[in-house]
């Protein structure tokens, strides 16, 4: 642990008071977990009882998009806020060296993998209403596809209009709000939908949420606001994201 004074301390150092405190914390937590007490009663029975009213047959999807749809709504907005935070950072003048162009292996990998990822995302979305899978998983895979495109600085991104990106990011959270308010207009509570029309609502919600989550994750990876067509040096071919972040 004897390092030069110019280097900042990197890894975890030996700090005995902190270690002692944390060992005590672990002991207390483990004792609280293992101490005999009344057995925990979960909500599984209640979920199973009202599963038919929810419109889907997957229990996790029913909880996510019907019973506790509030959580999912807020979660969509949290991701949206994250994108807004990243976009509001002023780009610094220190820039990394430019990446070389992607080679043949990378571009063929991208051509192979991205359609497959979109296909699997669609499959998970479709299967999500009666088995594992759903909006989040599909969104994560779509985000992975977007990250792959960004890493390879694909020419596909050059054709992406900036306005479309903003609309796509807004689509999921605001469609959620529209569905919630539409339930109110029909005389129900906010975000309350039941069996006959619930299936349609859940499926459309999942599709839009997956699309938006994927776009948001890719945007978060890109790290800053895409340069518009007006600001590039050769504006005819300036990509939506410049590859030097």
């Amino acid at each position: 642990m004897t390092k030069g004074p110019s280097k900042t301390a990197s890894a975890l150092k030996r700090q005995w008071p902190l270690a002692l405190l944390l060992v005590l914390l672990f002991t207390a937590l483990a004792w609280a977990y293992l101490a005999p007490g009344p057995a925990a009663v979960g909500l599984a029975a209640q979920v199973d009882a009202s599963l038919t009213a929810s419109g889907v047959s997957s229990r996790v999807t029913a909880v996510l998009l019907n019973f506790r749809a509030y959580d999912t709504l807020l979660e969509c907005f949290v991701i949206f806020l994250g994108v807004m935070v990243v976009w509001s950072l002023r780009p610094t003048t220190v820039t990394a060296p430019r990446q070389p162009q992607a080679g043949a292996i990378l571009s063929s990998l991208e051509r192979l993998l991205v359609p497959l990822m979109v296909l699997v995302a669609g499959y998970l979305l479709w299967a999500g209403s009666n088995q594992a899978g759903g909006a989040f998983q599909a969104g994560a895979i779509l985000g992975g596809a977007g990250v792959l495109l960004l890493l390879d600085s694909s020419p596909l991104l050059a054709r992406l209009p900036k306005g479309g990106l903003v609309w796509g990011i807004c689509l999921g959270p605001f469609y959620f709000l529209v569905v919630a308010v539409a339930a109110m207009l029909r005389g129900r509570h906010f975000l309350e939908y039941r069996a006959p029309e619930a299936t349609l609502a859940i499926v459309t919600l999942e599709a839009t949420a997956a699309f938006s989550i994927g776009l948001c994750l890719a945007t978060l990876f890109a790290g800053r606001q895409p340069q518009g067509k007006s600001r590039g040096e050769n504006s005819a071919h300036s990509p939506a994201w410049e590859e030097d972040s």
Binding site: L106, V120, A127, A132, G144, L148, D152
Partner: peptide, 19 residues
């Protein structure tokens, strides 16, 4: 299905490493 997703996305971190 999990294995399928795993196989698809594990390549991503390698691509990130290379690039």
């Amino acid at each position: 299905d999990v294995a399928l997703v795993f196989a698809l996305l594990a390549a991503l971190s390698t691509v990130a490493f290379v690039r």
